[in-house]
Amino acid sequence: MAKLLLPCLLLVLLLLAPALPAPQGRGLIVNLDTGELCLKSFQCKSGCCRHEGLLSLARCTPKAAELQGCSRKSIYNVYYKCPCESGLTCDADRTIVGSITNTDYGICIDPGSSDKRR
């Protein structure tokens, strides 16, 4: 029952979706809220479109806070780990392999802070 119901429901929803008026302040293409599906980071209010793996769906995610894992800004514009919040730098080594595979990971640090890691 539920198995049959679900695809039907989904189909109806997909047909309905374009007809639903988007409330002001958010959208379907840009200006997306945290948790909404995205393809590229420019679509997100937070400025980071993140996915878990290469084949998983990407969602808008808040940027990384200090001491959280991050990755450098990449031309792919989709991330496994979000770039840092403003004022912070992602303390990662840039490698050729890393920039191709989008895995230049590091930790967000405050460049002005005296207790920084290195």
């Binding site: 309905l16 958010r26 997306l32 945290t34 948790g35 909404e36 599906l37």
Partner: peptide
Amino acid sequence: PGCAKNAISQIVDL
């Protein structure tokens, strides 16, 4: 909060 997502983002949930 988190309940005003667009239809597809809501249904294709984590």
